[in-house]
Amino acid sequence: MKEIDARGLSCPAPVLHTKATLEQEHPDTIKVLVDNAASQQNVERFLRSQGFEVRLEKEGHDFAVIGKCGSPGAAVEPKAAPVATGANQKIMVMCATDRIGFGDETLGQKLMVNFIRTLKEMGPELWRLVLVNNGVKLAVAGSPVLAELKAYEATGTSVLVCGTCLEHFNLLAQKQVGQTTNMLDIVTAMQLADKVVNL
């Protein structure tokens, strides 16, 4: 087992030492000794984010954070970009309409309701749901999917609703769910997302 003594160091130094050790030596198990609660929490979080199982041991006044690699022998790839929490990828779904497809309006609306309901099958990978243009009508009073959108928000998906669009349709006061957003936020989200689905 690889051991790191990070006592006497303050955040973020213990995490940086741990990160450097993982990248250089790829240990299967690692023990990081820290002397304060902040470092303990940060090292614990870091190891979990890198796929380690973590347990804590108290050693006198110090804490030992012990990480065991989920798949033994597997090298840990150094990560340049931050990893998503609890999900393998971040999917952004952008709806610029309140119905799916052209032709029959009633069918299109029904399909959209079904689509919003079924989106939950993406699980925690559903990262952001962005509503623009006619799509904002899904988030206002009278929409058949308000309960679904609220449920998505409650489970950690951000629902972003275009402010300019709400204003255009004079629906600002009718919005029932989601955060009002702007184009900069939308563009930034597109850049950060692993996958963008457009509807």
Binding site: P12, P82, V83, Q179
Partner: peptide, 25 residues
């Protein structure tokens, strides 16, 4: 808390333990 504007990358970094000691203090 859901209404508090937070730079989106902050969540990922905080989840990785990149939290400054000042936050704990």
């Amino acid at each position: 808390s859901r209404q508090v504007p937070i730079l989106p990358e902050t969540v990922d970094f905080a989840s990785m333990g990149l939290v400054p000691g000042g936050a704990f203090k």
